[in-house]
Design a protein around this nucleic acid. Sequence first.
DNA 1: ATAATATCCGACCAGCCAGTCGGAAAATGA
DNA 2: TCATTTTCCGACTGGCTGGTCGGATATTAT
Lengths: 203, 203
Amino acid sequence: MNLNEKTARRDLIVRAAANVFAEKGFNNTLMVDIARTAGIGKGTIYEYFRSKDDLFLAVFDYFVQKLNESSVTVTTLALDSAADRLDALSRSIAAWVIRHRDIYTLTLEFWAASVTGSAEMREKLKMAFQDIYRKFRLLCASIINDGIGRGEFRAGIDSEAIASAIVGSWDGLCLQSWFEDDFDIEKTIAAYTDTLLRGLLTA
Amino acid sequence: MNLNEKTARRDLIVRAAANVFAEKGFNNTLMVDIARTAGIGKGTIYEYFRSKDDLFLAVFDYFVQKLNESSVTVTTLALDSAADRLDALSRSIAAWVIRHRDIYTLTLEFWAASVTGSAEMREKLKMAFQDIYRKFRLLCASIINDGIGRGEFRAGIDSEAIASAIVGSWDGLCLQSWFEDDFDIEKTIAAYTDTLLRGLLTA
DNA sequence: ATAATATCCGACCAGCCAGTCGGAAAATGA
DNA sequence: TCATTTTCCGACTGGCTGGTCGGATATTAT
């Protein structure tokens, strides 16, 4: 079995695990469930992963990788006005969330595990989430700062605070959409971004 | 043992359970941990609660009750301008979150359980969260609509979308503060509310 | 073709823990 | 004081499941 086959099999297990974890949660998932979903024997999983924790963290890495891949398209997007870029970013996030709606329930598991997982798990998840949030805040803040520099947005805006709130609203709206079946994330984010931008623009 | 004593003992157990669940999470919490924290025997818990699930739901009810008690102070607060009321509401939420920082990690457990708990648990938590979010959105939306009615805010604002985003940002900022140690929620919400209000006000 | 190696597998085991239960202890009543 | 009822408790158990291991199967090498 060459390296490609090995990697492919590993990926197969990770994807199967992602589905089962998303559906049942970490603690209610049996290793044998994952094996069955992947169409392999339970023992085989342990050829690729040390433990259930280890596999869960691999699923997390897979999730982070997906997230990073998608956001690239936006950061490289060069629109002229800061307002347009902020708007494009928001829309892109909304679209991503909707495209990955099923995987999204995993996030709840990751959040919970960052509080109540094993020491190693907490450590790793907490660091990773810090990175993710910092990165998105930085992205928003730099667009806002750029807007201020161009005289497009008011001076004296606390760009970091606004960036935090924007990123926070993404999480918060996803949560609400989880609880409310007919919740239109895209429409909501669009309307919200429009109003927030008015507050940012120079009068 | 009269009714008061009975209720007091039940509360003792619920509070102990809340602490242990918050620290260790539902699945890593042992009934004997809760008993020890409450200073009673494990068997005694089962005199007051049918099961671990049952106790967890009681903790959730306790949490919801605390939340409802606190928000009353704001809704009865009668300020003249809609902007001031929205600002006061945001500050009040920020203050509540900070005062209950320790209990807040419980929310992550409740969210997770609403996805991966037992059928009965999912049902109950999902309904309850729907109610909570609806209530807060309604509160925000009514203030915004009032502002529009008075000519204080621009006409044509999608008040429900803005309300969703405001409520969402509360959750999202709490999450970020969990991951980032030196995160100033109050300052962030204040700066954010200020900017958002500028976007709402008539030009 | 046959040996040697790599991969796969699932029956099994050991540890864990929610919930039980029978008796101790405390409260109540007579 | 003693009987009766209520409350408390923690040792025990039954079911569950992560991880192991030895043999089965597939692949590669000679």
